[in-house]
Structures are given as C-alpha cells and as structure tokens.
Amino acid sequence: MGRLALSYITYGEDVEIDAGEPGGWFMVHSIDRSSCEMRVGGRDLVAAPGMDVISSATLGLKMKWAAASAQLVLKVERPALEQHLASLLNDSARYPIEFLPDPATGAGRDPGYRRLLDFITAEAEQDDTFFRSQRGGRHLEETIMTMLLTGFPNNYSAALAAPVSPAAPRHVRLAEDFMAAHMGDAISVGDVAAAAGVSIRTLFEGFRHFRGTTPMAALRAMRLEAVRGELLVAAGRATSVTDIALKWGFINLGRFAEAYRKRYGELPSQTLRRVS
C-alpha cells in the first residue's frame, strides 16, 4: 500500500525473534490468536488477542511467539511517518519518533484502529477499490499515519495535542535549530538570539506568540526529551542518570530530576530501573 505494508502472519511452533532496531520501519502488531511476550525498547509486556502493540524504528524489539499464534502486522516506512508528523506539527521533527507501549494495554490505541484495518483488508480484495488509485492510496496512508501518531502514546503526543499555531517565523526556526544542535552545550539566551539574528526581546516575543513558551523553556524541553530517549534505550548499558543528564546540559541535578518528574510522571532513576 504505497509506503505501508500489511501482512497476516502465523506461527506453527514457538518462535523467538530478536529484530534489533528495525531502523527503517515502524510496526503495529495486532494480536489475533494466542499471545506474545514482547520487549519494546526497555518495556516488557505480554500481548494478548485484541491488543495492538506498536514498535519503533529506533528501539530494540524482541518477541517470543507462542505456537499457533497469529498477528496482523502493519509496517510504515520511517521517512513517511516523519514527514507526516512534520506536516501535522507544521514544523520539522527534531528527534526520532518513539512510541511508548503501555504494559497493561499494549499502546492505548484509538478504538477505531482495528476497525480501520478490517476495512482495509476487505477493500484489498476488491479490484475496483478507490484505494488502488494513487490519490486513494495517499489518503489511506495519511489516515492511518494520523491515527498512529494521535492514538498511540509517543514522545510527540503532547506537541500534537497542543493547539495548532501559525507557521513560526524564520528567526524562531533558526533559534530552534541552533538549540537542537547545541543541546549539550552551555548556551545562553543571548547565544540563541545571536544565532537567530534578532534581539533577545524579539526572540522572546516570537517564542511567546508562536510556541507559547520561552526560548530557554523550549531548550529545557528538548533536553528532557533527549534524556528520556536515552534512558528508554539504556537497557544493558553501563550508564547512569547523572552521566546522561550532564551529557545533555543539566548541571543542577536536583532541578533536573524534578523537571523530569513533572513532565513524565516518574523520576529518571525509575525510568532507568524499569528498562534495565
């Protein structure tokens, strides 16, 4: 289906798969029969019939499928999903998309997701379906990708839920690019304004109007996302919260831990323990 692929897969015996980091694909595993023990990034869960579990291009994936299991697998090309995210945000994606499966529910999906897949599989058998046309296929892609990005919790969920703002002016985008490139460095608001080619006052006004925040708060949010992304893939690595926090520019570790807790509902040490 263009930049998407849909497969129905069954296993006759117990099967273990270590897919590593898929790299170029996102996959949604819709369990139809039997069960599967899964480790997505650093999160362990048991996928039962009726659950839809999404895995990310940049997070490790391990699966233990029980005999006689069956699943419907949707694969989405990584560039396609990243481009669609940028169109929804009216801005470029500044870090990899990573979905956050809930061990209890799989991924907290939109209830309409499986109904949409059932419709697609039925239409796929029809020669005269609108979705075989280029225009129909593109509409189908966009519908599915929007449902994935808005229905499955991920590290862009908060940004996607925020009110849509007008396209940011060039100096705001330049400032964000500069901050993204120097997240681990000791940069000041003056450095950001200079990189954007505007005064500090103009910089603050641009972020207030188009981003609903301040430049340094935006930088802190970028750094927190970078820390969390690294913590979520830290399983088996000889690392510590302190090392990761310092790497991404957090000097006051107490303030960092509190900011992390407010944003993600748990301390960074809890995230690390959960994935180790």
Score class of each variant (00 low, 15 high):
109 R>Q: 11
151 G>K: 05
73 V>A: 08
92 S>L: 08
147 M>P: 02
80 A>T: 08
133 S>A: 05
128 D>F: 12
149 L>R: 03
142 E>R: 14
92 S>D: 15
134 Q>L: 14
76 V>W: 00
165 S>Q: 09
141 E>Y: 02
81 L>Q: 01
83 Q>F: 02
118 D>V: 07
124 A>M: 12
59 L>G: 07
153 P>T: 03
134 Q>A: 15
134 Q>S: 15
58 T>N: 15
53 V>T: 05
154 N>Y: 04
81 L>Y: 05
158 A>F: 06
152 F>Q: 12
131 F>V: 02
166 P>R: 09
155 N>M: 05
83 Q>V: 05
56 S>M: 15
114 R>A: 13
137 G>D: 04
107 A>N: 14
141 E>N: 05
187 I>M: 11
52 D>F: 07
68 A>F: 08
182 H>N: 12
188 S>Y: 01
177 D>V: 06
156 Y>Q: 08
123 E>T: 04
84 H>M: 03
85 L>Q: 00
67 A>W: 12
183 M>T: 02
67 A>E: 15
64 K>T: 03
174 L>S: 15
67 A>T: 13
195 A>S: 10
181 A>D: 01
140 L>G: 03
144 I>M: 08
143 T>E: 02
177 D>Y: 07
143 T>S: 08
191 D>N: 13
108 G>C: 12
56 S>V: 03
96 P>G: 15
152 F>K: 06
67 A>F: 05
71 Q>F: 01
179 M>E: 09
54 I>C: 03
52 D>I: 07
106 G>Q: 01
187 I>F: 04
119 F>T: 07
126 Q>H: 12
171 H>C: 07
88 L>W: 02
114 R>Q: 06
146 T>N: 05
109 R>H: 13
74 L>C: 09
131 F>E: 04
195 A>K: 01
159 A>M: 08
154 N>L: 04
192 V>F: 06
57 A>L: 09
